[in-house]
Simulated assay, not measured.
Amino acid sequence: MVVIDRITERLDALIANSPIASVISDPRQKDNPIVACNKAFIELTGYAEHEIIGRNCKFLAGPATEPWLTQAIRRGVERHAPVLVEILNYKRDGTPFRNAVLVAPMFDEEGELEFFLGSQVELEPTAPKTHENRRIAAAFAVKTLSRRQREVLAEMALGHLNKQIAFRLGLSEQTVKMHRALLMDRLGAATTADAIRIAVEAGL
């Protein structure tokens, strides 16, 4: 997996072991290129890693990709806010697929935008309610969390680190780490990226 030095330590916690197709892009570089991707993303899209790294995610767009949804993603990126849309994308062999795309900002310890997390879930055309079912399942899962765990999860979805979450919620960093571990276990989230996706799908 190709990464740049400053995100190496966070990569494994974010996407490497996620079963959800995921990428990390660097907004500090021109055109916000992908700097890391996981195996699930390679399997979903059919592209090799060297064909992915260094490109903007818009390479998945094609002739029938909805421009208004592309614009919705762009607005989320510009506002540094998480966004989730269902958009038509294309695999390497030209096969179109309905893609539930999540893009969420991630900040560094100084509160500066460091990179974006992108994750993709292919929606089966024969199951039009797939995305709605995911939303319902996510909302149900989030409701099982305690109030404080939901607050921590909401901050995670905004891209904040434990130190920032602790400050914003008036908690110790150790308490935030405890809640974070508990909520991820309760959600069955293997990685931070998975937990963030559940939060956004639930509308948290």
Rank of each mutant, 00 (worst) to 15 (best):
M1I: 07
V3K: 02
V3W: 00
D5M: 13
I7N: 02
I7V: 15
E9M: 10
E9D: 13
E9G: 10
R10C: 00
A13G: 13
P19C: 04
P19S: 04
A21E: 04
S25G: 10
S25L: 09
D26V: 14
P27I: 13
P27H: 06
R28E: 03
Q29K: 15
Q29T: 14
D31Q: 12
N32M: 07
N38Q: 05
T45G: 08
G46W: 06
G46Y: 07
G46L: 11
Y47G: 05
H50Y: 09
G54S: 06
G54R: 12
G54Y: 04
N56S: 07
N56I: 09
N56Y: 00
N56C: 07
K58R: 15
L60M: 11
A61E: 09
G62R: 12
P63F: 03
T65F: 03
T65G: 05
E66A: 14
E66H: 15
E66C: 14
T70H: 02
Q71S: 08
R75I: 13
V77A: 02
R79V: 04
R79M: 08
H80C: 08
L84Y: 02
E86V: 09
N89R: 08
N89A: 10
R92H: 10
R92P: 00
G94W: 06
P96F: 03
F97D: 03
F97A: 03
N99L: 11
A100K: 05
V101T: 13
A104M: 07
A104H: 02
A104C: 05
M106R: 12
F107Q: 08
F107P: 09
E110I: 10
G111N: 06
E112C: 13
L113R: 02
E114S: 15
L117K: 11
L117N: 03
S119V: 08
S119I: 12
E122W: 04
L123R: 09
L123G: 01
E124S: 15
E124A: 14
E124Y: 11
P128S: 07
K129T: 09
K129S: 01
E132M: 12
E132G: 09
E132Y: 08
N133A: 05
N133W: 04
R134G: 08
R135Y: 00
I136P: 03
I136T: 12
A138H: 07
A139C: 07
A139I: 08
V142E: 00
K143L: 12
T144F: 02
T144S: 10
L145A: 12
S146Q: 15
S146N: 10
R148H: 06
R148K: 14
V152Y: 04
L153I: 09
A157N: 01
L158K: 15
L158D: 01
L158W: 00
L158I: 03
G159Y: 04
G159W: 03
L161W: 00
N162A: 11
N162F: 01
K163S: 11
K163R: 15
A166Y: 09
A166D: 02
R168D: 01
R168F: 10
L171D: 01
E173R: 15
Q174R: 14
T175S: 11
K177A: 10
R180W: 10
R180G: 04
A181P: 01
D185K: 15
D185T: 12
R186Q: 13
R186E: 04
R186T: 11
G188Q: 01
G188I: 13
A189D: 01
A190Y: 06
T191A: 01
T192I: 14
D194E: 14
D194N: 10
A195Y: 06
I196C: 01
A202W: 06
A202R: 06
A202E: 02
L204P: 00
